[in-house]
Simulated scan of single mutants.
Amino acid sequence: MLKKCMGDPSLIIPTEDIGIKDNLSYEEIPVQILDRQVRKLRTKEVASVKVLRRNQFVKEATWETEEDIKMRYPHLFEFGEVPN
């Protein structure tokens, strides 16, 4: 059974601070590259980087192609070499 609840206006967070779009989604911005690896396929090599995003734990970091991350977030590669 549902109970009637009075909301507390002081607990409301403005959506402009979070960056929520009209369709109620937001982009998790990468903050750091943790690792780099090169996978060898039959005919080519694919470089991948382990990306840590904002509001994420290290164990939740994901592997993404280095080329894609370099194109969208070049600032992550400005300060020297990516760790191996």
Rank of each mutant, 00 (worst) to 15 (best):
M1V: 14
M1L: 11
L2A: 13
L2I: 08
L2S: 15
K3D: 08
K3Y: 13
K3A: 14
K4S: 01
C5L: 12
C5F: 13
M6H: 08
M6S: 13
G7P: 05
D8S: 05
P9A: 12
P9V: 09
P9E: 13
S10D: 14
S10G: 03
L11R: 14
L11A: 13
I12N: 07
I12F: 10
I12P: 00
I12A: 10
I13F: 07
I13E: 11
P14M: 10
E16M: 01
E16Y: 06
D17R: 09
D17M: 10
D17T: 09
I18S: 06
I18T: 12
I18C: 08
G19N: 04
G19P: 06
I20R: 04
K21W: 02
D22F: 06
N23C: 10
N23M: 05
S25Y: 11
S25N: 10
S25I: 02
E27R: 09
E27L: 14
E27I: 09
E27N: 06
E28V: 02
E28D: 07
E28F: 03
V31D: 00
V31R: 08
Q32F: 03
Q32E: 15
I33D: 00
L34F: 04
L34K: 01
L34Q: 00
D35A: 09
Q37N: 04
Q37G: 04
Q37S: 09
V38T: 15
R39T: 11
L41N: 14
L41V: 00
R42W: 06
T43R: 13
T43M: 08
K44Y: 15
K44A: 15
K44F: 11
E45M: 11
V46A: 12
S48W: 11
S48D: 05
V49F: 01
V49G: 02
V49A: 04
V49R: 02
V49H: 03
K50V: 02
L52F: 06
R53S: 01
R53V: 00
R53G: 00
R53C: 06
R53D: 00
R53M: 01
R54H: 12
R54K: 15
R54Q: 15
R54I: 14
N55K: 11
F57G: 07
F57T: 12
V58H: 11
V58G: 00
V58E: 13
T62I: 14
T62N: 05
W63S: 09
W63Y: 07
E64T: 00
E64H: 06
E64D: 13
E64A: 06
T65F: 04
E66C: 04
E66D: 09
E66R: 03
E66W: 00
E67H: 06
E67C: 03
D68E: 10
I69T: 08
I69A: 02
P74N: 05
H75I: 06
H75D: 06
L76F: 03
L76C: 08
F77D: 03
F77I: 03
F77L: 10
E78M: 11
F79K: 14
G80N: 05
G80D: 05
G80H: 13
E81S: 15
E81H: 15
E81D: 14
E81M: 14
V82E: 03
V82D: 01
V82W: 01
P83N: 07
P83F: 06
P83D: 09
N84P: 05
N84T: 12
N84G: 10
